[in-house]
């Protein structure tokens, strides 16, 4: 649904309690800007000029400049990555991912999750690269208890941005059949939908987050098993935004889905190789007026979980 129609629906659906102008007056609202990447795959330099598909596109230096430009324009910015940071250029083969971690840290990433290719240097290889990252890795459905990664990742992290509390967590794809066992060792893959709902419930209902973001490396559409962002979105509760990865899906803008409770959940993904910087801005009611949204929460067609 486009915004115009959504505003109309809300306005008529609430018998004029909401004034349309106040909703449009976004300057008064709390704004949270979420920037994101996925499947950057060790692409440090821009693609060469003579590249068939992406000539002179991408590059971490340019990504940093764009992020800094947005940071200078927006008060509250969160920078996230949905995994597969590793593998794709000789930088990874030669240095095992430490340069990727260094440049992401220089860009001030807030958090990332692990993709299947982040296991390509083995559990040991990932641990060797980790000290170069100043941001945490969020993994809610991989149990690393029987590996060296135990206690080195966290399931979720809560960020306080202005008046808004944002809960971020990560879910990863099934590794069996995708990553050689000797690389992921005794990592236990747990059902991502169950773990996502469990984690989102903690973030939303126990820790009082105003926004819940899932970093997903499940893929936009199902490949190996029946798991995907579309499935997760439909089966989820309490998740507002799923930042996808794995399938290298180029999306012009976030896609709106309905969750298990009929509430809205956005899914976004930006291809691969650091060609595109994903961006979703959320506007919050700055005054926190419960008369407007909270009371109509369940009744509007647009109600982000």
């Amino acid at each position: 649904m486009d915004r115009r129609r959504f505003l109309t629906t809300v306005a008529t659906g609430t018998l004029g309690i909401i004034s349309l102008s106040s909703l449009k007056d976004k300057e008064k609202m709390q704004k949270i800007t979420i920037l994101h990447t996925n499947d950057t795959h060790s692409h440090i330099d821009p693609f060469p000029e003579n590249h068939r598909k992406y000539p002179n596109k991408g590059g971490v230096g340019r990504r940093k400049r764009l992020i800094e430009k947005i940071r200078s324009e927006e008060e509250q910015v969160l920078l996230l990555d949905s995994g597969d940071i590793f593998q794709g250029t000789p930088y990874f083969n030669m240095y095992g991912g430490e340069l990727e971690m260094k440049v992401m840290s220089a860009m001030k990433y807030d958090a990332a999750t692990m993709g299947n290719h982040d296991f390509d240097g083995g559990i040991d290889g990932f641990i060797r690269a980790m000290p170069h990252a100043t941001f945490p890795f969020l993994c809610a459905n991989y149990n690393f208890d029987n590996t060296e990664l135990k206690n080195k990742t966290i399931p979720f992290k809560v960020f306080q941005k202005g008046g808004v509390k944002i809960g971020v967590f990560g879910v990863g794809v099934e590794l069996d059949g995708l990553v050689p066992k000797h690389l992921y060792k005794d990592t236990v893959y747990q059902n991502p939908v169950e773990k996502a709902n469990e984690t989102a419930n903690i973030l939303k209902n126990e820790l009082g987050c105003n926004l819940v973001v899932c970093l997903s490396h499940l893929g936009n559409v199902a490949r190996l098993n029946d798991m995907s962002d579309k499935v997760l979105a439909a089966e989820s509760k309490n998740i507002d935004l799923i930042i996808g990865a794995h399938t290298h899906t180029f999306m012009d803008k976030p896609e709106m889905h309905k969750n298990k409770e009929g509430k809205s959940v956005l899914v976004n993904q930006v291809g691969w190789a650091g060609l595109i910087l994903g961006r979703v801005d959320f506007y919050f009611d700055r005054k926190g007026n419960p008369d407007v949204w909270a009371s109509n929460w369940m009744h509007t067609t647009y109600d982000i979980a």
Binding site: K57, L211, K253, L266, L275, V280, Y283
Partner: peptide, 24 residues
């Protein structure tokens, strides 16, 4: 203190030579 989502915008941006930068 509970902020509720009112609206959103989505704008994925291509990373091109427009953002040339040498700081890394």
């Amino acid at each position: 203190g509970t902020k509720k989502v009112v609206d959103y915008d989505g704008a994925n941006t291509e990373i091109t030579s427009d953002y040339e930068d040498s700081s890394l």
